[in-house]
């Protein structure tokens, strides 16, 4: 009896398998697929959406930690990068100062600018070298680019420098190309004027102005600036000439003080 039932079941199953592989079964599968699959697709989409929502918006503890770590790393890298850039720029500036020291016969001392004038009407700076470093009143202050100014007062460790652009400053200068003599004086802002140049003198925009050495403060041949404007009036003895200083006073960070110019001058040098 049992064997009969088993045979009957086997026959039934085999018949069903057979039927599935027929065209009738195929169409049944297609029908079922076409009914169920959209629902399955929708459910899968919702599942995926929920999963993404959970992973990207709610379950973010690990991501947040990772983000914090990456931000910190980026910040450190930026800081290092900035420090490297600053070091490179400082290196360039110091190389220029060392270069100046090597090619000049004067004894120089490098100083850092620690403060600027309290008033925008007047132009002075405070440097971190004073009498202890040999800095004295009247000594010239220069940069590789040209003249900065001269020492106004000096304490033991600090000195106040009157910049060339101050209205009370004057440098005896000459036009490098034509050797026309005049006085470079500070004007308002960051520019200077070249006074007492005769109307007949040949001065053109772009001409370089250098120190003449006749004022007893600055050595001869230091760059002062270049001519930016020439106005020859119909009357008067002199031309109106504006200069742009060679030194960028807005970005002044380190300067050099010439320590032995006055001595050399007094010895006839």
């Amino acid at each position: 009896m049992g064997a009969v039932i088993l045979i009957a079941l086997n026959a039934g199953i085999f018949s069903f398998q057979y039927i599935r592989k027929t065209s009738m079964g195929d169409s049944a599968v297609r029908a079922v697929l076409s009914i169920v699959s959209p629902l399955q697709e929708a459910i899968t989409a919702v599942e995926n959406f929920t999963g993404r929502l959970w992973r990207h918006y709610f379950f973010l503890i690990e991501v947040a930690a990772q983000n914090d770590y990456l931000k910190k790393s980026l910040s450190l890298a930026s800081e290092e990068n900035n420090a490297c850039k600053e070091a490179i720029l400082e290196n360039h500036r110091l190389r220029a100062l060392v270069g100046l020291q090597a090619r000049t016969p004067f004894k120089l001392v490098a100083a850092e600018v620690v403060a600027r004038d309290t008033s925008p009407w007047y132009h002075t700076i405070v440097i971190n070298k004073g009498r202890a470093a040999g800095v004295a009143v009247g000594l010239p202050v220069v940069m590789p680019e040209g003249i900065v100014g001269h020492v106004l007062t000096a304490s033991l460790k600090y000195a106040k420098v009157l910049l060339m652009t101050d209205c009370n400053s004057a440098v005896d200068s000459i036009i490098q190309r034509t050797r026309t003599r005049g006085i470079t004086r500070g004007a308002s802002g960051q520019s200077c004027v070249f006074d007492y140049a005769l109307r007949t003198a040949d001065i053109q925009v772009g001409d370089i102005v250098v120190s003449s050495g006749l004022d007893g403060i600055y050595p001869k041949g230091l760059r002062v600036g270049h001519v930016s404007k020439v106005v020859r009036g119909n009357s008067g003895l002199f031309q109106d000439i504006e200069l742009i200083p060679c030194v960028d006073f807005a970005r002044l960070e380190e300067v050099m003080v010439i320590l032995n110019f006055a001595k050399q001058d007094s010895n006839g040098g």
Partner: peptide, 11 residues
């Protein structure tokens, strides 16, 4: 301020 500035003293 007068001490630190290049302005005439007393301004």
């Amino acid at each position: 301020m007068d001490t630190l500035s290049g302005a005439p003293f007393g301004v």
